[in-house]
Design a protein around this nucleic acid. Sequence first.
DNA 1: GTTGAGCGTT
Length: 456
Amino acid sequence: MDSDQGKLFIGGISWETSEEKLRDYFGQYGDVLQAVVMKDKTTGRPRGFGFVVFADPAVLDMVLQDKHTIDGRMVEAKRALSREEQQTNARAGNLNPARNTSGGGNIRTKKIFVGGLPPTLNEDGFRQYFETFGFVTDVVIMYDQSTQRPRGFGFISFDTEDAVDRVLQRTFHDLNGKQVEVKRALPKEANPGGGGRSMGGSYQNYGASGGNTSSYDGRMERYMQPQGTGGGFPPYGSSGYSTAGYGYGPATNGVGYGGYSGYTGAGAGYGGPAGAAYGNPNVPNAGYVSGAPRNSWNSQGSSGYGAMGYGNAASWGAQNAGAGSGGPGSVPAGQSPGGASGYGNQGYGYGGYGGNDGSYGNPAGYGAVGGRSGGTPNSNVGGPGGAELQGSGGGYMGSGYGDANGNSGYGNAAWRSEQSQASGNYGAPQANGPHGGQVGYGGGYGSSQARKAQQQ
DNA sequence: GTTGAGCGTT
């Protein structure tokens, strides 16, 4: 994370050493953007270490060469490791934590978490500052529910990811003399165990693996930072996916998924109609639910997923989604929450298809299935031309899926409920081509998030 | 006493 460049870990500090002291001391080397002394959250006792962030990362070189004594204790200054580095390095046995600026952060979001807000800041001031980076669609400052006191953090949403990137060029921003820190916002509901409200029904079926975060560092989970690059296919919860029986199992040859067969009824097994929100609706790429290993999603290119599902499609209003031909980008126009149930359904699925042999028929993504009406089974979707959506009705989640041959990927990705997020971040959007190319399967089980259309 | 904390409605 480049945002941690310029950050020093200071170990072995005295319990007497304050943040001000740290700042003053290291201020001799250069501008200090932030100096913190970590304390035990419950006892408030200093933990004996802290962090100092310099505006200019180059300063570190100087600092690292010197010995430092603060409040009578010799302290140790090292480059701070980002969390992911800690993990990675530890596991790899890499003792030389050279900074690696790659990795992490390739998740794109339109929302930024802003920490360190001065209590006096109001939303207008907050907004005005960030408007210089792009069109701000939403501004939130959090307050304590009971005391109504500012909690010191808030969120800024932009209409484009680019704006977010611009903001994230720097970790600290100066709002009228006060420093605030920006980070990508964690996707709300990132994790089923976390109490998100979409937890209600179907979510749980998911996540075969138990769906909790225990095996991952919570933060990592939330940020979806890559830890290493796993190569292989993640064991997608083979068992998980509800009863529909998708067998998502990874094929050992790395190709495609097998599975899934037969899918008949609309939404069957999916937890129901519309929307069962699977997967993480917010995180692009996240797709899968908690149990899924994050690795692979971060680097599709190399991870062997050829074509990822498609972006996603539509937003709400299932029924009109135009016939999606499945082509990426062809996002069905589904807006209009009005009407129907307001659920989304995105179109498509698409079959990943792995084809080990060339015989499969439809390489192409298939189309969608989006909102189809409840009863119609629509099996066989899949023609390259895209199935047609038939609307009306209740908008069942159709989900895409496979092709006639039974292979299929399945996919569908509707992350997020917010309007058009089309174009997901998937790698190659289309499983086109003669099989050769792409394997894999794409798409995470996206989900169509079940969210009410209305909003206020 | 040596690697962090805050994440959503207003």
